[in-house]
Design a protein around this nucleic acid. Structure first.
Lengths: 237, 237
DNA sequence: CAGTGGTCTAGACCACACG
DNA sequence: GTGTGGTCTAGACCACTGA
C-alpha cells in the first residue's frame, strides 16, 4: 500500500546510504527531510532502523556518518571467554574506555545473585568495549569485596575481569547467563553513543568458582551487528 | 538533572501503572498527556519502554491496558525443544494463531542456509505463538519440499514443526542458532501486536539431521519478558 | 561561533475496535 | 459513530561538535 511515507523513506535512505562511501557524512537531518519530502521526526525514525543495523552512526553535534564494514566478533556460547580473548582469537583490535572501578553497597538484586549479606560491600567494574574506535559493548561486573578489591586491580588493567581472575589463579568452572533484548536506557545510550530506545542484546551472568560459589555477577550489553553469538543445541528426547 | 520531561514521565507513569489493577484500561493518550503535562509524542515514547517491559499492552482502537503477571517460559539453550514442549514441561497453555503454510521459491539466503539448488521449492510455515491469549513469539520455518510438503501437515497441525518432524521419525540431531536483537519491522509488529521499532530477541537456526544435512532454516522472534533463555557455559582454558 | 543531532510540542489525519 | 492508538507534520529549543 505504501500509504505511509515511512515505507518509501526506508528504500530511499537505503539507496542513499549504499551509494555513500563509508566514512562520509550524510546531509544534515533538516536538509535530508526536505529533500526526501518528510518531516524530521519521520526521517529520524527511519534513521534509527539503519543505525540498529549498524549501517550509519549518528554523533550529536557532528553529523551522521556511513559506517564501513565492521570486524564481527563471532563467538559460540558453549565456552565462556572474555571479549579480549575472543578478539585475540579473531585477530581483532579492541580497546576499553570509560573505565570505572568503584566500591558500592549491595542492593537487593546483588544480595540474591551473589548470595552475600545485606549491606555487604561490592566492587563494581564498568567499561565500554570498542572495536575500530566505535563502542560495541557495555560491561558491568559486580564482585564481593572479599573476591576483588579495587586496589587489587593492576594499574594497567585492560578491562577483562574474567581474564584477571583466571590469571590470578582463581578456579572458575562455569557461568550461567540469561539472554534477553532491551531498549537502551539513557545511562546505556550515552557511553555507547547510541540513542535511548535503540535495541541492545543483554546477557546477565553469574560466574561460579570450583566450590560453587558465585563470585561475579555481570550485566553485558551488546550493540547488534558487531557480534555473532551462536549456540549449538542437541535435540532432546 | 531531570531537565527533560521524559525522566519525570517515567516515574509518574510507573506510579500510575503500579496502582492500576491488571486488566484495567489506562486513560487515553490525549488525556494522559494533558494530565501529566507533556505532549502525546513524549508520552508515547515513555509508553514504549513500559510496553517493552511487558507492563502494559496497547491495542489500536481499544486502549492501553495494564498487563497482569505473565507465565514466564524458562528454557535452557543446551537442549533444543519446541515452544510447545517447553510449555508442557512448565504446565503452561500456549496456542497458535495466524498460521500460514505456503510453497515459496528459495532465495539467496535460503540457498546458502539450506544448501539447496537455486529455484528449489520450499515449504514455509509461519505462525504466532500465544500465552494467555497474548502474542509472545513469531516463528517462521523454511524446509525443502523434499523434506516437507504442505499437504503432509495434518489438518490439526498445532504449530510445532520440530515436534512434527520428530514424531514422524526423522532423525534430528542438533541445531545451530545465531542470537541477536532487532527492532520489530512492520511485518513483525502487526501479528505480534506491538509497535514497529519495539525490541525483539531473534534466533536464526539451522536444524540438522543424522547425516548432517540442514533440513530446517528457521527465524524466531521473541517478545522480551515472556521468555527466560539461559545458557550454561564452562570456562575455557 | 554556526551547524549538528537530541528532544519536545501542538496539532492533524488515519485505521481500527467497539457499541 | 465515536473514541482509541498509529503515524506524520512543522516548528521550537537544547547540548554538543568542530572550525
Amino acid at each position: 500500500m505504501s500509504h505511509f511515507p515511512f515505507q518509501r523513506l526506508q528504500a530511499d535512505l537505503a539507496a542513499l546510504i549504499s551509494k555513500t562511501r563509508p566514512g562520509d557524512r550524510l546531509p544534515s537531518e533538516p536538509d535530508l527531510a526536505k529533500q526526501l519530502g518528510v518531516s524530521r521526526a519521520t526521517l529520524r525514525e527511519a534513521m534509527r532502523t539503519f543505525e540498529t543495523q549498524g549501517l550509519i552512526h549518528r554523533r550529536q553535534g557532528a553529523g551522521t556518518f556511513v559506517v564501513g564494514k565492521v570486524p564481527i566478533m563471532e563467538a559460540g556460547l558453549e565456552l565462556l571467554e572474555s571479549i579480549d580473548t575472543m578478539a585475540d582469537r579473531l585477530g581483532l583490535e579492541v580497546s576499553v574506555s570509560d573505565l570505572h572501578v568503584e566500591t558500592i553497597p549491595a542492593d537487593k538484586e546483588h544480595i540474591t545473585a551473589l548470595n552475600v549479606a545485606p549491606a555487604a560491600k561490592l566492587t563494581r567494574v564498568r567499561r565500554v568495549m570498542r572495536a575500530d574506535g566505535r563502542p560495541v559493548a557495555y560491561l558491568m561486573d559486580c564482585l564481593p569485596e572479599e573476591v576483588l578489591k579495587p586496589s587489587q586491580l593492576p594499574f594497567s588493567f585492560k578491562g577483562s575481569v574474567l581474564d584477571f581472575l583466571i590469571d590470578r589463579g582463581d578456579h572458575l568452572t562455569a557461568s550461567r547467563a540469561a539472554i534477553s533484548a532491551i531498549d537502551a536506557t539513557a545511562e546505556l545510550a550515552k557511553p555507547l553513543e547510541i540513542q535511548r530506545g535503540d535495541v541492545l542484546l543483554q546477557f546477565i551472568s553469574q560466574l561460579y568458582n570450583a566450590v560453587g560459589k558465585v563470585i561475579d555477577y555481570s550485566s553485558s550489553y551488546f550493540i547488534p551487528g558487531y557480534f555473532h553469538f551462536h549456540v549449538n543445541r542437541r535435540v532432546g528426547g
